[in-house]
Structure formats: C-alpha cells, structure tokens
Simulated assay, not measured.
Amino acid sequence: MRKTFLGVLVFMSQLIFAQGIEVISTQALTLDGQGAFLPKISPKGDYILVTGDDMSGLRKFDLATGEMTTITTDRNAGFNAQFADGGSTIVYRKSEYKGRLRYTSLNSVNLQSGETKRLIKPTRNLEGVSVKDGTVLAVNNGKLVTKRIAGAKLKTIPAIPSIKNSQLYITVNGKTRQLSPNGTNVGYLWPSVSPDGTKLLYYVIDEAKAYVCNIDGSNPVSLGTLRAPVWMGNDWVVGMVDYDNGEVVTYSQIFAVTAQGTHRTALTDKSQICMYPSASDDASKIVYTTQKGEIYLMKVATSK
C-alpha cells in the first residue's frame, strides 16, 4: 500500500513538473523614446516588430544591436502582421478609405532589400491571413488565395482560420466552411493554428475565454479567461487577463496556460498593466507591452 501511495506521489510530481513554466529573466527594452505597441517577436527571436497606438506603421527593433528601423508607415499595418521565410519578410495589411468604406490590401516587405509587393488588392472581405514558410495564404470573401514570395512550393496547404460576421471559419484543401465550435450564438476572435497544424486556438467574446480544439472543431477545451491568446510552441498558450472600469484598463497580467488547459501560471504581477504578449517559436522568449507603450522581453523555460 505504501509503495502504491509513493508511486502516486511520484507520478503527480512528474505531472506537475511536466507542465512547468519558469520565468528566467524580464528586461525592459530601450527603444527610441516613442511609444510601441502590439509587439511581435520574430520566429528566431532576434528582433521585435512594434506598431503605433493606433496600429499604424511597423518598426523593427533589433535585439542584438538595439537599432530601430521603420518598415512602413501604412495605416493599420500593425494589425496581425506576420513573418514569412523565417522572418526575412513581413506580411501586413494596409487600410484605405473610399468614401466611408474601408478597404484592406495585403502587402509584403523584404527586410534585406526593402522591396514591397502587393499580394492582394484592396478588398472589403479579407477574412483571414496565415503564413507557412515563404507562402502567404489568405481567405478573401471565403476563397483561398495563395502567394509564394520565397522558398519552395508547399507540398500541402495548411488549414487557414478566418472570421466572418464574428463567426469562426476554417479553410481546408481550398474549401471554406463554418466551424464555430461553441455555437453560432457567440462571437469569435483571434483564431490561430498551432505550429504543428493539429490544433486551433480561438477566443469566445461572449464568454471572455480562450479555447483550443482539434482542427476540425471537435473537443473544444477551455483555457479560462485569456484575451489576445497566441501559441507558444505546440504545448503552451500565452495571453492576458485584463479588467477595466468601463473607460480604461485598470490592471492586466500576462498568463501562460497549457494547451490542455490543465496548468495556468501568472508570468507578471499587478504592479504594471502588461498586455498583448507574443512568443518565439521555440517557446523561450515572450515580449509584451505596457499601457504606456513600454516593451519588455521575458525569457522563460518550459517542459512538456
């Protein structure tokens, strides 16, 4: 009986360790004195993209040199900007108005040459954008559009999530269908596919909760309250838990949650309003902003 009890304790301690995350260090980054928001760390973790408080423009902050470079000043470029070809190219949206109607185009810029390309002309229905290696995949008015800007042709096309009329859709093998795993009576935000392509992360507005489900929408698992969730490798998700008084955010913390929803850890305390995290592909670095536009780099260690 004692051996059985000890065995259970060993198993439980292994499980807890297996779901562990530890903050190694947190560093305030010295930028150029301008406010920086919605930071995104590059796939290799060597630079950070930041935008303005209205999501206009994109700037690159080199972590090795501390150099800040302006990539574009286009309106709305900071909304869900993405990396292509290992981080050598940035894919971003540009908003423009015709009368009172807003149109969105999709563009890319090569960081070495500075060359900018228009991938999708201005449209009213750009519903989802993903990048796989050097290929950009977009859902425009429910139809898949692919643009190879670097590297070899993809052997298989990954699943592409999109949002239309606050509902969650998935495009698989060129066909788009409504998914909405939590029903059609709620709204959805921030969908993304795990790096290995097997899981879908999303946020349910009406519940203020993040979920992970299978790529076909089955088996949705709640991660609890977690806004602006993003993948940190295949096993972890990071996001923020924030509250407001109806006018301004009163506090916000960065949390990490296992993709199974079994382990939840606060990575920041309540001494600062910390928001909108982004994680490196190897799950070793997290960047986030404060309400004042200060950027922090956090190094973490995780174990499966």
Rank of each mutant, 00 (worst) to 15 (best):
A210L: 14
M232D: 10
S252C: 00
S284N: 15
E127R: 01
P161V: 00
S252G: 13
S280I: 12
I149P: 02
L189W: 15
I24C: 00
Y188R: 01
A283H: 07
T51P: 03
L49K: 14
I41Q: 05
A64S: 14
A18Q: 03
N141L: 12
T104M: 10
S192L: 08
S252E: 04
A301Y: 04
M298G: 03
E96T: 10
K175G: 08
G99A: 02
L58G: 06
I215S: 09
L106C: 05
G151A: 08
L154R: 14
T176Y: 07
V249P: 04
S166F: 15
K147G: 01
Q27H: 14
V109T: 05
M1F: 14
S88F: 00
V109I: 15
L226D: 03
Y92G: 01
L137H: 01
I48A: 07
L101K: 14
E115R: 07
A301C: 02
V50Q: 10
S95C: 07
G151E: 09
L137M: 10
M298A: 00
S303E: 09
Y288S: 04
P39T: 10
G33M: 03
Y103P: 04
V238R: 04
Q82R: 13
T198V: 06
T258E: 00
K209H: 15
V237M: 09
K164M: 12
L223P: 01
Q272E: 09
V109R: 04
S88C: 05
G86H: 00
D46T: 15
G217D: 02
L179D: 11
T146L: 14
S222Y: 10
V129S: 03
Q14L: 15
A256S: 09
K147D: 09
A228V: 09
T69I: 07
G187Q: 02
G261Q: 00
G134E: 08
P195W: 06
W236A: 00
R2Q: 05
D235H: 07
S13M: 13
P43N: 12
L267H: 10
T290L: 07
I21E: 02
K94P: 00
G66Y: 06
V172W: 05
T4A: 13
I273M: 05
V172L: 14
E67L: 11
T262Q: 07
T73P: 02
Q82F: 04
G86S: 06
I71Q: 07
T135S: 05
V212I: 12
K153C: 08
T4Y: 13
G239I: 09
K155V: 07
I163S: 06
K270S: 04
D53N: 15
L168D: 06
V230A: 09
V145M: 10
L137P: 00
S130E: 11
V8G: 02
N185Q: 09
G87Y: 01
T225N: 11
D244A: 06
N219H: 14
G33N: 05
C274P: 03
I170R: 11
D62V: 06
L154N: 12
I157R: 10
S278C: 00
G35S: 08
T51R: 08
